[in-house]
Simulated assay, not measured.
Amino acid sequence: MSGLSLVFDTPQLAQDYEVRSAERQFRHGQRLIAELGVRAGERVLDIGSGTGLLAEHVAGTVGPTGRVLGIDPLPLRVEIAQRKGHLPESLRVQAVEDIKRELEAFRTPEGIRLEGKRLFAIAHKPASH
């Protein structure tokens, strides 16, 4: 069984991903967000956010009263997202291992609680070539 290796990512591959995903993958993500009807004030978990292009777009949609958390297993792509100096306060992109701390903000003794709000989880799937 072959799979995506997380070991062989390089700065050049991460930067190439930033450029390539800005084309087709980003457009599909924008369409998905529109179809889901994501609104201001809502919370979105972007799983496999890469360099944060779609997460940044969603942060503009949910505005300052919403929240977007982008996570990715590839640290070099997370670094690219975090280096973008113009990201809104409502957006965080971080490594997968850091997600546990973020989810604790929603946890109650009964489990994850969103206080009647919707939480969207958008999972990215690598494109097949």
Rank of each mutant, 00 (worst) to 15 (best):
Leu91Thr: 06
Ala105Thr: 13
Leu54Ile: 01
Val93Leu: 05
Pro64Ser: 12
Val78Cys: 04
Gln25Ser: 15
Glu18Leu: 15
Gly70Glu: 07
Phe26Trp: 14
Gly41Pro: 00
Gly48Met: 00
Asp46Phe: 05
Glu115Met: 08
Leu54Val: 01
Arg27Glu: 15
Ala22Cys: 12
Thr10Asn: 05
Lys117Gly: 08
Arg24Ala: 06
Glu35Ser: 08
Glu104Gln: 15
Arg31Asp: 07
Leu74Lys: 12
Val62Ala: 02
Glu102Leu: 03
Thr61Leu: 15
Glu23Asp: 02
Gly66Ser: 04
Val96Ile: 10
Gln25Asn: 13
Glu104Val: 07
Phe26Asp: 09
Lys100His: 14
Asp9Ser: 08
Arg113Ala: 02
Ile47Lys: 00
Lys117Asn: 10
Ser5His: 05
Asp98Lys: 11
Val58Leu: 02
Lys125Tyr: 12
Ala59Leu: 10
Val68Asp: 10
Gly37Asn: 03
Gln25Leu: 14
Ser21Arg: 11
Leu4Met: 05
Thr61Tyr: 09
Val44Trp: 01
Ser49Gly: 15
His57Cys: 10
His124Gly: 03
Arg67Val: 01
Phe8Gln: 13
Ile33Tyr: 00
Arg24Tyr: 07
Pro109Ser: 04
Ala81Pro: 13
Val68His: 09
Val93His: 03
Gln12Trp: 12
Leu32Asp: 00
Glu102His: 11
His124Ile: 04
Val78Gly: 07
Leu32Gln: 00
Pro11Gln: 00
Ile47Cys: 09
His129Ala: 06
Thr61Met: 14
Leu87Glu: 10
Glu110Cys: 07
Thr10Gln: 08
Ser90Lys: 02
Val68Ile: 06
Ser5Lys: 09
Val19Gly: 10
Leu6His: 10
His86Ala: 15
Ala55Leu: 03
Gln82Asn: 01
Glu23Val: 01
Ser90Arg: 02
His28Phe: 09
Val96Asn: 03
Arg43Pro: 00
Arg43Ile: 11
Glu18Met: 12
Leu91Ser: 06
Ile33Gln: 00
Leu119Pro: 03
Arg118Ser: 14
Ile112Met: 13
Pro88Arg: 11
Ala14Asp: 11
Thr61Glu: 15
Gly111Lys: 08
Val96Trp: 14
Leu114Cys: 12
Ala127Trp: 13
